[in-house]
Design a protein around this nucleic acid. Structure first.
Length: 263
DNA sequence: ATGCCCGTTGTTAACGGA
């Protein structure tokens, strides 16, 4: 079974590239982020014609996540489970999480808040959101079924996961210890990172800014991550970042992360 | 060549992205 995660930066603008990639890579299930789509505008029919059913949490102009599957979509849950300290309780709902079981594998597709700047309220929201995610996935993570959280975490796990750490200042997000701790706290509920292979260069970056020749110069970041429980990790036969999908015109600024499983 | 920002919206400027 092949699963993948991809921040596609608008499913409307990206549909031709998405359909092309689905045919080429032939994943069984795909976690998508940044749909930037209303529920009405989501291209359900086009994806069905390509062989994929969809579980969608679309929020309109911003955010939005989905799971595509060729192998079933069962027990879909939308958003994070409300509870004490639930960060969305005081603001508008943001479409940043959805989960489903696909072919016996439980998957969460997540779009972690950006944070903007360390002194911006959005940064605190980001840390709270990651805490709520940890609580929300704890039961699935502890279960016997292969389970993984896949998505755009908006956190580079180590200094090596950005092209030049010296360019990140005191107020820069994505690289702070608090953000990294909030992500690695997932290990406390039994998850561990599934590391992808690099197809080129040392570090398999997943994001390159559209500006200033980010991709050709490989000024990238590794922020799209896969965290799996022990049964999931044990089933992994390969994982890589499909940087081919970042080449050319009309692409997302992120590349897909692919994980092959013996299940 | 992988090539000089992109996507969305009470659009023609502003904002988010990271």
């Amino acid at each position: 079974m092949r699963v993948a995660t991809w921040n596609i930066n608008s499913i409307g603008a990206r549909l031709p590239k998405l359909l092309e990639w689905l045919e080429r890579a032939a994943p069984d299930a795909v976690c998508l982020q940044e749909l930037k789509s209303t529920p009405e505008a989501y291209p359900l029919k086009e994806l069905e014609e390509a062989g994929y059913t969809s579980a969608v949490n679309a929020g309109g102009r911003w955010n939005g996540v989905a799971i595509l599957s060729k192998v079933g979509l069962d027990d879909v849950t939308v958003g994070l489970t409300p509870g004490p300290g639930f960060p969305e309780a005081d603001g508008p709902h943001e479409a940043r999480a959805i989960s489903a079981t696909c072919g016996g594998v439980r998957l969460w597709s997540v779009y972690v808040p950006n944070g903007r700047e360390v002194d911006n309220p959005h940064y605190a929201y980001k840390l709270e959101w990651l805490g709520a995610l940890r609580a929300a996935v704890a039961a699935d993570a502890a279960g016997p079924r292969p389970f993984a959280v896949l998505g755009d975490f908006n956190v580079a796990p180590t200094d090596k996961d950005v092209w030049d750490i010296s360019l990140f200042g005191e107020n820069s997000t994505h690289v702070t210890q608090a953000e990294r701790d909030a992500v690695t706290a997932l290990e406390g509920v039994g998850l561990r990172e599934v590391m992808p292979r690099a197809l080129k260069y040392d570090v398999p970056f997943t994001y390159w800014d559209y500006r200033e020749l980010g991709f050709p110069k490989n000024k990238g970041m590794r922020i799209d991550l896969v965290y799996g429980n022990a049964p999931f990790a044990a089933a992994v036969s390969d994982s890589y970042v499909d940087r081919e999908a970042r080449k050319g015109k009309g692409t997302s600024d992120h590349a897909p992360v692919v994980v092959d499983l013996d299940v």
